[in-house]
Design a binder for these strands. Structure first.
Lengths: 251, 251
DNA sequence: GCTGATCTGTGTATGACGCACACTGTGTGC
DNA sequence: GCACACAGTGTGCGTCATACACAGATCAGC
């Protein structure tokens, strides 16, 4: 039933600073954050594909296998990288209303991803348990303080916002994760060209109708517009729930 | 400016059936869908990690390198796999209202992912251009017929729904993608235990408050509830937009 | 029906990768 | 002062994506 610290995966123990009692033998030279930082440096410079145990170790002046003293697998390395890349969230403005607070939180998440676009390529196997990820979650939940939302409501809502931000950022940012030899604009134009060639009005009337009036090639900031559109929509949905809860409705 | 078929990546040419003029030399033995089906079989049986060029080729009785006659890279193989895995969407019910239609569409997407959970692990580099992906998009757009939403509204909305379904399914389904040696329930319980151990009320009051009243261990169908909660919220947000558009507001 | 261009599928090879394992030397707690 | 647990090393294995040269098959054009 109860759970003790030493049953945790080693990575989580290290990230949470849960050292066991003092033991004989040499002390570790590295800190897990050193490894994370080195890996993040590589990923920022050349994408997630450039991160290998070998390269990270070399970056630190160690051998490949030494990393396995800190990290049980490459997936664990990813956990450390994400932890490092997201960093600590700024506290949401306590004086603002919930919409402004959630927006602030969503923008922070998006900015973090923009700083480290490879985050979206990291394969996810488990829900987060690392300290900074939980801090982000905590901060997100706090943004709903003062609303009539129940605790499960708040959890589901912040999860929804998080899902949205990740998803839309993946959609709008994946092109500049890609290769550096194409600008985002060029990639967009190429896509629009191909889409209009393939999605013929006969077989795909709705798609064709959507794109024929130049939705794609207006110069406006498509990414920001799309981000705001979806966020507004999600917030409107949450607002509807808040209204219902304020009226005392259960469903 | 204009785009011709032969500038398309080979995979797209094959998926769209855009054969060039007849040329000398032997005709291909395989069809691109054969490759997709074989790869999907492997992924369904043992996860995306079990898909290698080698194994797919062996499954078909060919050599590894033969696949490169059809597919330029492993990423292209992924495209073919996703195309095969999603299949053709059922048409949405034209008599239902837009909420029912979108819900139907969202459930279809979710079901497809549930049938092939590895879909969520496939790295995404480009927006989709394959025929069946466009068919899903077309069908989603058609679900908004009869609403006062503009074409860009509809595109953004269906993108939002798609983002949501993928995201929430990843969150609720990633555990059964994982290893077969843990049931989903066990994994959930382990997670809840660890979360309650790590997210102490002093440092993480909001998280602790959310989980202390047993949000996680009620036996109810957490996945379905969460899916419905978010979808309802998203649809409520879109409904707010529809109301605004019906009132003739531009913003 | 011949011919030659051209394509399909094969065989071999390469460099990178994650990681298992046995080992060495070190420095700490007793 | 000493034993020994542990940090970091070196080597090696199996797997992977994919480059490249090649052999044989096959069809278009004459």
């Amino acid at each position: 039933m109860s759970q003790t610290a030493d049953e945790l995966p080693r990575v989580l123990q290290l990230l949470w600073g849960l050292e066991g009692p003092a033991r004989p033998g040499p002390k570790p030279t590295l800190q897990i954050t050193d490894i994370g930082r080195a890996a993040v440096r590589l990923a920022d410079a050349a994408g997630l594909g450039a991160v290998s145990m070998n390269k990270v170790a070399a970056e630190l002046g160690f051998t490949t296998m030494s990393l396995y003293r800190y990290v049980d697998s490459k997936d664990d390395l990813y956990v450390v990288m994400v932890e490092e890349a997201f960093g600590t969230p700024d506290p949401v403005d306590p004086k603002a209303d919930w919409r402004a607070r959630i927006t602030q939180w969503a923008v922070m998440v998006r900015d973090a991803i923009h700083r480290h676009p490879w985050i979206l390529q990291v394969p996810v196997f488990e829900p987060p348990l690392s300290p900074k990820q939980l801090l982000w979650m905590e901060e997100g939940l706090r943004a709903f303080e003062g609303t009539p939302l129940t605790n499960p409501d708040r959890l589901s809502s912040i999860v929804l916002v998080n899902i949205y931000v990740r998803g839309v950022t993946q959609l709008t940012a994946n092109l500049f994760v890609n290769q550096a030899d194409k600008t985002e604009k060029e990639a967009d134009q190429l896509y629009a060209q191909r889409l209009m060639m393939l999605a013929t009005p006969e077989r795909f009337p709705a798609i064709a109708a959507t794109f024929e009036d130049g939705t794609f090639d207006d110069g406006s900031d498509f990414d920001d517009d799309e981000f705001e559109f979806g966020l507004t929509t999600v917030l409107d949905g949450i607002e509807a729930l808040i209204t219902r809860r304020a009226a005392g409705t259960r469903r």
